[in-house]
């Protein structure tokens, strides 16, 4: 039992497990759904422990790169990787806005047969993280469950104000 903050996302997909597994592990299919509303380019995808997945998400003339290093590959049940944000040369890089965001998120995806459907659970926890990284992730995770409703209410108010005054000063 650890007290590391954990992000958990459960989802049931209406497809047999082999098909869901294929959608996660065939880079041509993976690129079609991974990354919300961006163009995803998979530069390398070596599905084995120690192998890497080099991923670029593009929009306009900007892009965002990340490197995933597989730790466990158990077809068609389980994928484990180290998830890191990188610069365009695939070196691990902190986000300047978020210096204490965990450098490595240990990401586990499990696929469980459920009749004709598939239960997928994704978890992310900070890996070999500093106290500051753990605290940062913890605050962000806690913020998702509580308090952000009021964050949005305040934000709406402010945006109304900004619009009213023609973008501040």
């Amino acid at each position: 039992m650890s007290d590391l903050p954990e992000y958990i996302l459960d989802r049931v997909f209406d497809a047999p497990r082999d098909m869901v597994w294929r959608a996660w592990t065939d880079p041509a299919l993976l690129a079609r759904w991974y990354g919300p509303n961006v163009e995803t380019i998979i530069h390398k995808f070596d599905l084995k422990p120690g192998g890497v997945w080099l991923n670029e998400m593009k929009w306009g003339d900007k892009s965002n790169c990340s490197k995933m290093t597989f730790q466990e590959v158990v077809a068609p049940e389980k994928l484990v990787w180290h998830h890191t944000m990188t610069d365009t040369d695939w070196n691990i890089a902190a986000n300047p806005m978020m210096p204490d965001w965990p450098r490595i998120l240990l990401t586990t995806v499990t696929f469980e047969e459920n009749g004709a459907t598939t239960n997928v659970r994704l978890t992310q926890i900070p890996f070999e993280a500093t106290a500051a990284e753990i605290a940062c992730f913890k605050e962000a995770m806690a913020g998702m469950d509580k308090g952000w409703g009021s964050g949005y209410a305040i934000l709406d108010e402010m945006l109304r104000e900004l619009r009213g005054s023609g973008n501040g000063k």
Binding site: A23, W33, P36, M98
Partner: peptide, 28 residues
């Protein structure tokens, strides 16, 4: 705004990607 956006972005990253996966699985 940026902090809330960041959180939203993290929370929605997988959620929205999974929506897209739903569509792909239907196509498959």
């Amino acid at each position: 705004a940026l902090a809330v956006d960041w959180l939203t972005q993290f929370r929605e990253f997988w959620g929205k990607s999974f929506d897209q996966l739903d569509d792909l699985l239907l196509t498959l």
